[in-house]
Amino acid sequence: MAGRRRGKAARGRRARQLSWGGAAALLLAVVFWASVWPYVLGVVAVGVVAAITWRLWRTDRLLRGGDRLWRQEEAVQAGRRTLTQVDAMTGTEFEELVAGLCRRDGCTEVRRVGGAGDNGADVLGRLPDGRTMVVQCKRYAPSRAIPNRELRDLLGARVHFRADVAVFVTTSRFTRPSEKFALEHGILAVHRDLLGLWNNGASLKSLGEVNGRGQGDARHRVRWKKAYGG
């Protein structure tokens, strides 16, 4: 009988000890949380803000990329005039067309300067790589050919404006000697065929990679004369 009473008393003491231990643990947890919860909430808040910021940044990049692509496609479409339409332009309109194509391809500080006292330049600007350029534009009838003299004038303009690159753009073609002259003096000679490619989306940089080509052989020149005369 006495043993049962002692066992019951021992169990009671253990129950009270567990109760006190649990209460103490709960009290410590409450005290700990009270001191830590601002930091926990701060970390959570920073994480949420970071996630929202990243999502907004990514959305902005996607939208900007899509808008840039759309604008580039619009610029190409706007520039896709037929060469017949280009032939009907005034000299000033043709210069504006060339300036617009330069801007489309990433050239900066592009401005039309053609007119009286233009010192041999119609368009000035900078290539995407930062080099300065001077452009001469000649909207001639397709039957005409560009002689050396006009290319020499462009060389003078390159020296006058201290430009790194000289570009000659025409709606006609270059004579064999003038084409050779352009290659020897580092002039980008954009004849009618290359102008058609440029007008339809090819970049100015890509034209430099085929400089001196595209006017064809003797048979091509015969077809040219049949089509345009001269």
Results as ranks from 00 to 15, higher is better:
L56M: 08
L56I: 06
L56G: 00
W57I: 02
W57Q: 04
W57T: 01
R58H: 05
R58C: 01
R58I: 03
R58Q: 09
R58T: 11
R58Y: 02
T59H: 06
T59F: 03
T59I: 02
T59N: 09
D60M: 04
D60K: 12
D60V: 02
D60F: 03
D60N: 07
D60L: 09
R61M: 04
R61Q: 12
R61S: 02
R61N: 01
R61C: 02
R61D: 02
L62M: 09
L62F: 01
L62G: 00
L62T: 05
L63W: 05
L63E: 10
L63Y: 04
L63K: 07
L63F: 03
R64Y: 01
R64A: 03
G65F: 00
G66N: 11
G66S: 10
G66K: 10
G66T: 04
G66H: 07
D67M: 06
D67Y: 02
D67L: 12
R68I: 00
R68P: 00
R68G: 01
L69F: 05
L69K: 13
L69H: 08
L69S: 10
L69V: 09
W70I: 07
W70C: 07
W70G: 03
W70M: 11
R71F: 06
R71Q: 13
R71N: 08
Q72D: 09
Q72W: 14
Q72M: 06
Q72P: 00
Q72E: 14
E73I: 05
E73K: 12
E73Q: 15
E73F: 05
E73A: 13
E73N: 11
E73H: 12
E74R: 15
E74W: 08
E74C: 07
E74L: 12
E74F: 07
A75N: 10
A75S: 14
A75D: 14
A75F: 06
A75P: 02
V76T: 14
V76K: 15
V76D: 08
V76R: 15
Q77I: 08
Q77C: 06
Q77K: 15
A78E: 15
A78W: 12
A78Y: 12
A78N: 15
A78D: 13
A78M: 12
A78F: 12
G79W: 10
G79Q: 06
G79D: 13
G79Y: 09
R80Q: 15
R80T: 14
R80G: 08
R80S: 14
R81K: 15
R81W: 14
R81T: 10
T82C: 08
L83T: 03
L83W: 07
L83Y: 08
L83C: 04
L83H: 02
T84I: 10
T84K: 14
T84S: 14
T84R: 15
Q85P: 03
Q85W: 04
Q85K: 07
V86Q: 06
V86M: 07
V86I: 15
V86R: 09
V86T: 10
D87K: 09
D87V: 06
D87W: 10
D87A: 14
D87N: 12
D87T: 04
A88I: 02
M89L: 13
M89F: 13
M89Y: 07
M89D: 09
M89V: 05
M89A: 08
M89K: 05
T90W: 06
T90V: 05
T90P: 04
G91A: 15
G91F: 06
